[in-house]
Amino acid sequence: MQSAISRHRKRRKLKSEINVVPYIDVMLVLLIIFMVTAPMLTLAVNVDIPKSTARSVDSKADPIIVTVDGDGRLFLKLQDAPIAEYSDEELLDRLRAFHEQNKDVPVFLAAPGEANYQRVIDATAIISKAGIEKVGLMSKPGGNAR
Rank of each mutant, 00 (worst) to 15 (best):
E85A: 11
F34T: 13
G70V: 11
D58Q: 12
P50L: 12
V36W: 04
P112E: 04
M35Q: 10
A81G: 07
L78P: 02
A115V: 01
F98W: 07
D62P: 03
D69S: 01
D80C: 01
L30E: 04
V47L: 00
L109H: 03
L109A: 05
Q101F: 03
N102D: 06
L41E: 10
R73M: 14
I132S: 06
L30I: 10
N116D: 15
P106C: 03
V45W: 01
E114N: 03
T53H: 01
L31K: 11
D69F: 03
G113S: 13
E114S: 07
L92F: 13
Q101V: 12
I33N: 06
A123Q: 06
D69L: 05
V107S: 06
E100A: 14
D88A: 08
V45M: 00
V68Q: 07
R96D: 08
K60Q: 08
N102V: 05
A81S: 13
Y117D: 09
V107R: 00
V105S: 09
L95A: 06
L31H: 12
N116S: 09
L74V: 08
L30A: 09
M35W: 06
P39M: 04
D88V: 15
A130R: 07
I127G: 00
H99W: 06
P82Q: 12
G70Q: 15
I132L: 01
I132Y: 09
P39R: 04
P50F: 04
D122W: 00
K60D: 09
G70P: 08
V57L: 15
F34E: 13
A54F: 03
D80S: 12
L43V: 12
K60C: 00
G131P: 05
L78I: 06
I126Q: 00
A110H: 03
L30V: 10
F98R: 12
A84P: 04
K51F: 15
K129R: 11
P39Y: 04
S52V: 03
A38P: 01
V107N: 05
V57M: 14
S52Q: 00
A44C: 00
L91A: 02
F34S: 14
F108G: 13
D62N: 10
L41T: 09
A111M: 07
A123E: 06
L78K: 08
L43H: 11
F98Q: 08
A110M: 14
L109V: 04
K51Q: 14
R73E: 15
K60V: 05
T53C: 11
D104L: 11
A123I: 06
N102P: 02
R119M: 10
T42K: 14
K129C: 13
I132V: 02
A123S: 08
R94P: 01
N116I: 11
I127D: 01
A111R: 02
V105L: 08
L74W: 05
P39T: 13
G70W: 07
P50G: 14
E133P: 00
K129Y: 05
R119A: 12
V68C: 04
L92I: 11
P39A: 02
Q118A: 14
K103T: 08
L74S: 10
P39I: 09
A125M: 09
V36C: 06
K103W: 04
L43S: 13
V135F: 03
T67R: 12
P106E: 04
